[in-house]
C-alpha cells in the first residue's frame, strides 16, 4: 500500500485531475466577463489572427469570385425580376416609417426597444474544435461591444457576445449547446387575431437536424409551420424584432405542459464573414425611471 502512494506518476496524475476539475468548474460558472490574463491572451492572439486572416480571406475571395462569375447570368436574370418588387417595397417602407413616426409623436413615446446602433465587425477566427461554437470578431470594448449584446448578419440573429476584450470579442452562436445560452423569442402569429405574439425561449440546438429549439411555448398556443420567429426584446439586452428563423415543426414538450417548436435559423450559422453587433441605443423610459429610482434608493 505505501508503495502505491509513493508512485510519483500516479500522484502527478491524481493532482492534475483535481486541478482539471477545479479549473473546469471555475470556467463553467456564470461569469460576466473573462479575467484580465485571459483577456490579454485573447487580444494578443486576436491580433495575430487578424494579420493571418487578411491574406487568407483575399485568396479565398479570389476562388469565390471565379465561382461567382459562373453563376452571373442566372443570378442577373433573377435579380432583375426582383427589382420591380423592390421599388414598390421601398415606397411602402417610407410611408410606413412616416406613419410610425407620426403615431409615435401622437402617443408621446420616445425611442423604442427595436432601435439599435449596429457595430460592424469582421470574423477573424473560429473555435477549431466545434463543440463550443464560438467566433472571434475584430471589435472589442473600445468600440462599445459588451457581453450579452445581440450579434446579427443581414439574414438574422446568429448569437450573442460571450466576452469582450479591448480589441476583440468572442461571439457565442445560437447553435452552441450551453445551458446559459437562452434568448427570449416570440412567434409572430398571423391570422384572425392580427399582431398577436406567442413567447418562448430559444434554448438548445438539434445538432443532427440543424434546427434550433424554441421551448416554453404555452400549450394552448396555435403555432403553424413557416411562421416567423423574432427576438422579443423582453430581456432588456437584445433589441426587439430581430429575425431568428422560421417554424418547421411543433411538438408537445416532455411533460405536455408546454410546447417545443423546431426553428430553422434564417442566418447561415456556418459561413459567417461579417457580422453586426446590435448596441441598444435607447432604453425604454419606464426601465430608465425604474433604474433611477432604485439608484436613488440605494443612495439614501
Amino acid at each position: 500500500m505505501p508503495q502505491f502512494f509513493l508512485n510519483k506518476r500516479l500522484i502527478i496524475l491524481l493532482v492534475s485531475i483535481i486541478i482539471l476539475v477545479a479549473l473546469i468548474g471555475f470556467s463553467l460558472r456564470e461569469r460576466e466577463n473573462v479575467t484580465w490574463p485571459e483577456q490579454f491572451l485573447k487580444d494578443m492572439t486576436g491580433w495575430v489572427q487578424n494579420t493571418v486572416s487578411g491574406p487568407t480571406q483575399y485568396i479565398a475571395g479570389f476562388f469565390e469570385n471565379v465561382q461567382d462569375l459562373q453563376n452571373t447570368y442566372t443570378e442577373n436574370k433573377e435579380l432583375k425580376s426582383r427589382l420591380d418588387e423592390l421599388a414598390f417595397l421601398e415606397a411602402e417602407v417610407q410611408m410606413l416609417q412616416k406613419d410610425n413616426d407620426e403615431l409615435r409623436e401622437v402617443i408621446d413615446k420616445e425611442g423604442s426597444l427595436s432601435a439599435f446602433d449596429p457595430v460592424h465587425a469582421a470574423v477573424v477566427g473560429r473555435n477549431p474544435d466545434r463543440w463550443h461554437e464560438l467566433l472571434t470578431i475584430n471589435k472589442g470594448s473600445r468600440d462599445g461591444v459588451e457581453p450579452n449584446m445581440a450579434v446579427i448578419t443581414s439574414n438574422g440573429l446568429i448569437g450573442k457576445v460571450k466576452s469582450s476584450q479591448t480589441f476583440t470579442s468572442t461571439v457565442q452562436l445560437l447553435s452552441s449547446m450551453d445551458p446559459t445560452n437562452r434568448i427570449s423569442a416570440a412567434v409572430q402569429v398571423s391570422g384572425d387575431k392580427k399582431n398577436e405574439k406567442v413567447f418562448g425561449l430559444i434554448e438548445g440546438y438539434d445538432e443532427k437536424r440543424k434546427l434550433l429549439l424554441l421551448t416554453k411555448i404555452p400549450y394552448d398556443a396555435k403555432i403553424e409551420k413557416d411562421q416567423a420567429v423574432v427576438t422579443s426584446g423582453l430581456g432588456g439586452v437584445f433589441p426587439e424584432g430581430l429575425p431568428i428563423g422560421k417554424v418547421v415543426e411543433v411538438t408537445p414538450a416532455e411533460y405536455g405542459l408546454t410546447q417545443t417548436a423546431y426553428i430553422e435559423p434564417g442566418a447561415d450559422l456556418y459561413d459567417i464573414q461579417h457580422v453586426m453587433v446590435a448596441k441598444i441605443s435607447s432604453m425604454s423610459p419606464e426601465i430608465q425611471k425604474e433604474l433611477q429610482r432604485s439608484n436613488e434608493e440605494e443612495d439614501n
Partner: peptide, 16 residues
C-alpha cells in the same frame, strides 16, 4: 492552456 483560454473559454479540457 492557450487553446482553452483563447478558443473554448473552458479551461482544462485541452490543457489536460
Amino acid at each position: 492552456l492557450l487553446f482553452d483560454i483563447v478558443y473554448i473559454e473552458v479551461i482544462g479540457i485541452y490543457l489536460f
